[in-house]
Nucleic acid binder design. Structure first.
Lengths: 246, 246
DNA sequence: CTGAAAACTGGAACACGTTCTAGACTTGGG
DNA sequence: CCCAAGTCTAGAACGTGTTCCAGTTTTCAG
């Protein structure tokens, strides 16, 4: 009647039943993910067709749909595998907890600048099939995990006396997330050049945090805003409003 | 089997070449747009299939692709037809030019609250095909037009001494646009309930504008933030796990 | 009035995501 | 060792958006 529930991401970690069957399954999963990464990296802008993906992974098309439930799930898994944000954040140094917030932001967006075509293709595919099921833009675990990271950074900056937001910390985090998402959306749809992506998002963050800063924190936020503005000015070329009307 | 000939009644609206050919073309365009509106409104969540759209409009499938270039273009035209934002903005009253900015924001988002399913389906379709060509999320004219409106409102608030942004007015406008887009994206992907859409976006605006406010303007922005926060609290139940990006 | 250009029409075709079925294979328990 | 359950495979099928073609109708110009 119904397809067996797709295996949860990172299921290969469960150590309980080593069984040969599970091992083979995990291997197939890994092969599919690798094939997806390679295909996107090779074809650049093209979005990976499922049939070619299965062929490349040495696996049947039906198997791909058995292991992941949809193309969306494959891309999501690739995207979540690709980033070790938490680890790199841990060894990130900053003069104070407010600057650390901006440093974390820069780190988060550095991935896109490092491999724009790859991530653009990924996000494009993700957006293209966002309406099918009710799933959002990331897996629930990843969302919870990421939120916790940002909330922790905000809490620290607040405790250190840099921030005194007029709204709840959760609401502030949400605003920052929406700002990032919107900037990313502009970038994915071609309304924002890659070199302007991180500064543009950072400028938004600086303005929001400036609105939440204590008198002590305000200069730091203002300095961040100035820094991002300078970065934007350095690539001042008009960000090509997409051409149409033939 | 012959289809009734296209009616050419009172088609003398176009100024330059009234020609019967152009009139018939415009009539077909209008029929297609009306069919699209009706189909989305009826089927709700379903995205309109092009074949049924053509059939409903009494037009061949090929004709639809001749007049609009793609499904995306049809949806875009529907979306831009549906809104008379500029006109309603003109007769919008507010105690001061900063409050007027918030009132304009509320007006912009009121459309979505009034007909959520319709607009959600529209945006979903728009996002689904955003990667095909290089076009962004709106037509260039519409983008220019809308930007001009917001820039005008910001300029007025600045001239009246409510705002003193540490960045250019254009950058501020861009930040607000990205914030709105991100909030809208969360809503479209189901990460944000309809009742929380406008307050959530408004809260972001309030925080950003608070960061750009003069001492005179700060209380107004803070009051707006409090108002949006109250609205959010009124529908406090977090309906679904929030999506998050970076 | 006549011919040519323009626009529309029906229909086939392609590539895609997704689902389904029937058969073949592997694995693990008895 | 053997069998039942689980899994994979090949392939067809459906509904998409989009393109293309041949044939027909409609309009406009001379």
């Amino acid at each position: 009647m119904s397809r067996p529930a797709p295996i949860a991401a990172h299921a290969a970690l469960s150590p309980s039943p080593p069984g040969r069957r599970e091992a083979a399954k995990a291997d197939r999963r890994a092969r599919i993910l690798k094939a997806a990464r390679d295909l996107i990296r090779e074809t650049g802008e093209t979005d990976l067709p499922m049939r070619r993906l299965a062929e490349r992974a040495g696996v049947s098309l039906a198997t791909t749909y058995n292991l992941f439930g949809s193309k969306r799930a494959v891309v999501l898994a690739v995207l979540e595998d690709e980033r070790d944000f938490a680890r790199r954040l841990a060894r990130l140094e900053a003069p104070d907890s407010l600057s650390r917030l901006f440093a974390a932001h820069d780190l988060a967006f550095s991935y896109y600048a490092a491999d724009p075509d790859f991530y653009r293709a990924l996000w494009r595919t993700l957006l293209s099939s966002s309406g099918a099921d009710e799933t959002g833009l990331a897996s629930p675990e990843r969302i919870r995990e990421t939120r916790a990271i940002w909330l922790g950074l905000l809490e620290r900056a607040e405790a250190d006396g840099w921030l005194a937001p007029p709204v709840s910390r959760a609401a502030l985090e949400r605003t920052l997330a929406q700002l990032s998402a919107g900037t990313l959306l502009f970038w994915v749809t071609g309304a924002l050049a890659t070199e302007r992506l991180a500064p543009s998002a950072g400028l938004g963050w600086a303005l929001v945090l400036l609105g939440c800063a204590t008198p002590a924190g305000a200069p730091i936020a203002r300095a961040a805003a100035a820094r991002y503005r300078a970065a934007l000015r350095a690539v001042a070329a008009p960000p090509d409003p997409p051409a149409e009307l033939p």
